[in-house]
């Protein structure tokens, strides 16, 4: 089982303006962790560093003990998958074709789809609940279906570590719930899942662990009840909030106060 370890990660697009500093974290198999934080706090940048797209300016991001950006591309892609926030697909690919792209790192340059590939693609489509959509064009899908199609492509990579950058934005409550449950199931099956979430109500319910990012630093980490306190949310988001407990589960629910 793979793990992703961050040790003192700092990152700057244009030094010396650091976007991230001093970030240490551990993502391990079987855990669903959510990354929360205000706009511009560095969530997307942290995910890009952890995915190996950007090497950290300081510190290290280690995938199974080796800096993630030093892994050979294909070997990395078989262990770690990432679903980015905005994806514009250039052509009219079908869902099945998009999901099959998840096999890129597993198959040869000119190899045909093997039975292993086919099985992985079918399983990924089932897990992400897009098997009924497989012949549809990616451009003909609703927002929720599209996100699940990209998730299925990432699952077809059969990664041990799955990173997702705000996959729930623009989804309605039903699709948000469905998506979070798919992630929950994948983590229960042994994958380390790390998802950046914008919505604090969503973040508080299913994840095992929350990491709160503010101004490029991790200011809190732990169970939702430990992280979502009125003080930590107020200071991180600079917003007036109250924390109540969910009538069904007792999970902390962040209520923004918009009055006065």
């Amino acid at each position: 089982m793979s793990e992703l370890l961050g040790r003192g990660i700092a990152f700057a697009y244009a030094p010396p303006d650091t976007v991230l500093s001093g970030i240490s974290l551990r993502l391990q198999g079987g855990e669903l962790s959510a990354l929360i934080g205000p706009n511009g706090s560095g969530k997307s940048t942290l995910l890009r560093v952890l995915s190996g797209l950007y090497p950290p300016t300081c510190g290290e991001a280690l995938l199974d003990g080796r800096p993630v950006h030093r892994w050979p591309r294909r070997e990395r892609a078989r262990r770690l998958a990432m679903v980015e926030q905005q994806r514009a697909v250039g052509f009219d690919f079908t869902v099945r074709e998009i999901v099959a792209m998840g096999r890129t790192a597993h198959r040869g340059r000119v190899a045909r789809e093997s039975s292993i590939d086919r099985a992985a693609i079918e399983r990924a489509m089932q897990h992400a609940a897009v098997d009924a959509l497989m012949d549809r064009s990616i451009h003909a899908l609703s927002g929720g279906e599209r996100q699940r199609a990209f998730l299925a492509a990432a699952l077809a990579q059969q990664p041990s570590v799955l990173l997702l950058d705000e996959p729930l934005t623009h989804l309605d409550i039903r699709h948000q719930r469905q998506f979070m449950h798919i992630l929950r199931d994948r983590s229960a099956a042994g994958t380390a899942v790390f998802v950046a979430v914008h919505d604090l109500i969503l973040a508080s319910q299913l994840p095992d662990r929350l990491l709160l990012l503010s101004g490029g630093r991790l200011v809190a980490a732990g169970s939702p009840a430990e992280v979502l306190t009125a003080e930590s949310v107020r200071s991180a988001f600079a917003a007036e909030v109250d924390i109540v407990s969910h009538p069904r589960s007792g999970a902390p629910v962040v209520l923004p106060w918009l009055g006065d």
Partner: peptide
């Protein structure tokens, strides 16, 4: 084909 998912998308699929 992988580049059809954008440059970052291709990178995450293991393509340069």
């Amino acid at each position: 084909n992988a580049l059809g998912l954008g440059e970052e998308g291709a990178f995450h699929l293991g393509v340069s």
